[in-house]
């Protein structure tokens, strides 16, 4: 760790802390839809970002550990991650549309029943 932190590192630590704190709060208060799995994913994602922000050299160690070195590999990996995120977003959108379609279909069927 450097002796002094850059502004972006402080910002990431603050944001990650807030996100983890909120996740923990939702879990403790048993908010609807909050599961331990969700909290765990939140801690891993945001905690991982904070750790990488504080120890940037860690990414080199990890890259070396999994045998992935060189810039081109990083570019390809980033591309994969972006594509993955896009697919995730698309699937979410499709799921939402499917649910909305079902709701509209259901409302129409029940309207028919009300008019009988």
């Amino acid at each position: 760790m450097n002796s002094s932190l850059h502004l972006y590192q402080i910002a990431i630590i603050l944001i990650a802390s807030v996100m983890i704190f909120q996740g923990g709060k939702n879990f403790v208060r048993r908010k609807k839809g909050q599961t331990f799995l969700k909290l765990l994913i939140r801690v891993i994602v945001w905690g991982g970002m904070a750790v990488v922000a504080v120890y940037p050299s860690l990414t080199n160690d990890i890259a070396e550990l999994i045998g992935m070195q060189g810039n081109i590999n990083a570019v390809i990996l980033t591309g994969f991650i972006l594509v993955f995120l896009m697919i995730f977003k698309l699937l979410s959108a499709i799921e939402r549309l499917e649910q909305q379609m079902t709701e509209v279909t259901r409302k129409e069927s029940l309207q028919e029943l009300r008019e009988k």
């Binding site: 379609m101 079902t102 279909t105 259901r106 129409e108 069927s109 029940l110 028919e112 029943l113 009300r114 009988k116």
Partner: peptide, 26 residues
Amino acid sequence: ATAIRHKINRGKGAATKTGIEAAKLL
């Protein structure tokens, strides 16, 4: 029977839920 219809196929779960909603209405 009282028959209602989904205009498009939405699956067994969706149809069951629609039936339950209809029963609640009745």
